[in-house]
Amino acid sequence: MSAALLAPEVFAALAEPNRLRIVELLRDGARPVGEIAERLSLLQPQTSRHLRILSEAGLVRADRQAQSRVYHLLPTPFRSLEAWLGTFAQVWETRTDRLDSYLSDLEAHERLDAPQGDRE
């Protein structure tokens, strides 16, 4: 998966602390704007603005229920983000394997270089 498949708007939307808090809150289930605002101690217009940005980035969707809008997370961008981050797992695994090998070699050399009485 290339970074091109991840819209820059997703990163920009998630980089703002209040929007990240909204996403974390919605992870537990859909919520109306008023509840989101109350739970996060934000003003409703401020919350609506953050939700609009999250919606434009494709991270959330609103459903109208009676007089309110209920927001929930959309799974696709999070799956794409997870897949993209997963590509880094191989990089870190390879680096960790190399470090483990280096430390094992270093330890072996130290044992060989140690005086006879210090060897285990």
Rank of each mutant, 00 (worst) to 15 (best):
A7T: 09
P8L: 10
E9W: 02
V10Q: 09
A13M: 09
L14P: 01
L14Y: 05
L14G: 03
L14T: 01
E16N: 04
P17G: 11
P17Y: 06
P17D: 10
P17M: 14
N18Y: 08
R21E: 01
I22Q: 07
I22Y: 10
L25V: 05
L25Y: 07
R27L: 13
R27A: 14
D28P: 00
A30N: 03
A30W: 04
P32T: 07
V33K: 08
V33Y: 01
E35S: 14
E35L: 11
E35I: 04
E38K: 13
S41F: 09
S41E: 15
L42K: 01
L43G: 09
Q46D: 11
L51K: 07
L51Q: 11
S55E: 15
S55C: 08
L59W: 05
A62M: 06
A62N: 03
D63C: 01
Q67T: 12
V70M: 11
H72C: 10
P75W: 02
P77T: 08
P77H: 05
F78E: 08
L81A: 07
L81I: 01
E82Q: 02
A83M: 09
T87C: 00
F88P: 00
A89W: 04
V91Y: 03
W92Y: 13
E93G: 02
E93L: 04
T94Q: 15
R95N: 10
T96G: 07
D97E: 15
R98V: 07
L99F: 07
D100L: 15
S104T: 12
S104P: 00
L106T: 14
E107M: 07
E107F: 00
A108F: 06
H109G: 03
L112Q: 15
L112G: 04
P115F: 05
P115R: 13
G117Y: 07
D118R: 08
R119D: 09
